[in-house]
Design a protein around this nucleic acid. Structure first.
Lengths: 166, 166
DNA sequence: AATAGATAGTTCGAATTCGAAGGAGTTGGT
DNA sequence: ACCAACTCCTTCGAATTCGAACTATCTATT
């Protein structure tokens, strides 16, 4: 019998880490089915549409979308291409920066978003929102907001690895 | 200005949804870099190793892993294949069920896991754990645990068949 | 036992993802 | 005006992911 080395247990405060990952994965999975059925959309595509519809007065660049959705830029190029091909979004050259491309919802895209949203809301409610009462839900929102602020305040992705030797 | 913006069409209690998704994506992204650098592992591969090392006395089947990591079975087959090819895990036929395959850490896999874990813990701590004080972190853990229980009480992920409700 | 229906895992093709490399535009210092 | 460094986005190839179809095994009912 191979002696099984017991891997070092993680510190107990890391329960929050695993719980977070699993909850988020389960929510995404639950939502993906609905989006596919009701609108033929992948989760990422839905996120792009939702973000574009969020505030039409401030158009979103590819980089804005990639940062917020935590997606690679090349992946975004691909998905925005798919959505554009389907006539759901339009690429609009930025007036201020000739390098940038803004992505806006087309009328068709806005209509699809509205068609998909009720079912989406229902699934998220069933799977996530209804798991907690109002007080606990507000508390969870507050705590996640704190984490988000903490993360956003940290250095960008160009984080150089601190050489540990010294 | 609120920390968490929500598309106008969504009820306000859905802030928790967007916050959850973004936090989780950022944590994963932060962790991926460290895993790749320190161990040449993808996040999924690390999760598989970590889960196998969690409690060697209770071996994990492919389905166990797929359910817990919220991954497709075919994707798991691929990744376990990669890990086995690298000599990090071993496929062991289940003694109780000839259909099932259990995945166990090899000595090499356990060693790699131990080598990668300290840096991993450091990144998770920096990015997530340190965002909150002890009280808030425990509270977040508790709330996520409640959501998890709620989700798990619902039909399994594998439950997917066209069976007419007679 | 014998059958039907679930379950475990794999294989396959198609779609998606990422990182690296590259083209084009912008910025700031001189 | 110039040049270097930076940013925005796309293209490309390789790796990963999923769902559907399939084989083999288990379970429950008859």
């Amino acid at each position: 019998m191979p002696d099984v080395t017991v891997p070092p247990a993680l510190p107990p405060e890391f329960g929050v880490y695993f719980a977070l990952l699993e909850v988020s994965a389960l929510v995404q999975h639950g939502v993906e089915g609905q989006l596919r059925r009701d609108g033929g959309l992948s989760f990422v595509q839905f996120q792009i549409l939702a973000m574009c519809g969020e505030d039409p007065s401030s158009p979103k660049s590819m980089t804005d979308l990639a940062d917020r959705l935590v997606h690679s830029k090349s992946g975004l190029t691909y998905q925005v291409g798919q959505l554009a091909k389907a006539g759901l979004v339009e690429r609009v050259p930025s007036p201020h920066d000739d390098r940038a491309v803004n992505v806006t919802l087309s009328a068709k895209g806005a209509a699809l978003l509205e068609r998909v949203l009720p079912g989406h809301v229902a699934v998220v409610r069933e799977v996530l929102v209804d798991a907690l009462d109002d007080v606990d839900r507000d508390e969870l929102t507050r705590l996640l907001g704190m984490v988000l602020r903490h993360m956003r305040s940290q250095p960008r992705r160009s984080a150089r690895r601190a050489s540990p030797p010294s």
